[in-house]
Amino acid sequence: MKRLAYVLGLPVVLFAAWFVISAGSENFYAPPLSRILESFGRTWTLDRLQADVLPSLWRLIAGYVLASVIGVALGVAIGLSRGLRATVEPVLEFFRAIPPPVLVPVIMLFAGIGDGMKIIVIVFGCVWPVLLNTVEGVRAVDSVQLDTARAYGIGGPARIRQVVLPAASPQIAAGLRQALSIAIILMVISEMFAASNGLGFTIVQFQRSFAIPEMWSGIILLGLLGFALSLLFRLAEGWVLRWYHGLRSVTKGR
């Protein structure tokens, strides 16, 4: 109960402040919050959620999952092999330095303007934090744990599944968390370039047609979506890594 109050306290205050300050606003571009909220219900009907939010979510999830799988798989391979690491690392640093939005026009040339393009953009942006964190996590696996696995004949795929991946999982989770926020940003950006539906597309449409309260309501929806996704992520992480948080609280207490 107290925790809930802490979580909700500041957002409530901020919203209240926005509400009060914007109450008498005459500015066309910054309408009162009351009008924004009013348009929120009108704008985001079930139809629109289906037509615009679902496609966005689908691209987001597809891109994110794909990036996670590629990032973890490549990361494990690179983390385990010194030779591969030496060969690949400089190239990775180069690709990582390219801001993904710059690539949207390029990717459009190859992948068109459909879902494929947007998913590729998301993958390209998300894969780096996952990949680099996985490499670091795999490299940092305790040598005693690896010796134990070898001494007990745990090799090959079992070694990766039962020892390397779980040992690296706290670091992998840190990468996945970073990737999630990048994925949301890139979802919106890719839809702003060329799209016929989606949240980013709709928000830009509202802005261009001077439907300002509706535009603001879309931004709020985007914020809520991001918040809900990171909450889901934290719940899942807390469950999967409960051993890690428990272990940490024990070793800190000593």
Binding site: Q145, D147, Y152, G153, I154, Q162, W243, Y244
Partner: peptide, 27 residues
């Protein structure tokens, strides 16, 4: 079979006691 000095590093902290003992047997 080997028992290591650093038990804290040799047991897998993400597995229950049962799974730790059972893993080599599964292999």
């Amino acid at each position: 079979a080997m028992v290591f000095q650093e038990y804290g590093r040799s047991l897998f902290p993400w597995m229950s006691v049962r799974d730790n003992v059972e893993l080599p047997l599964r292999q």
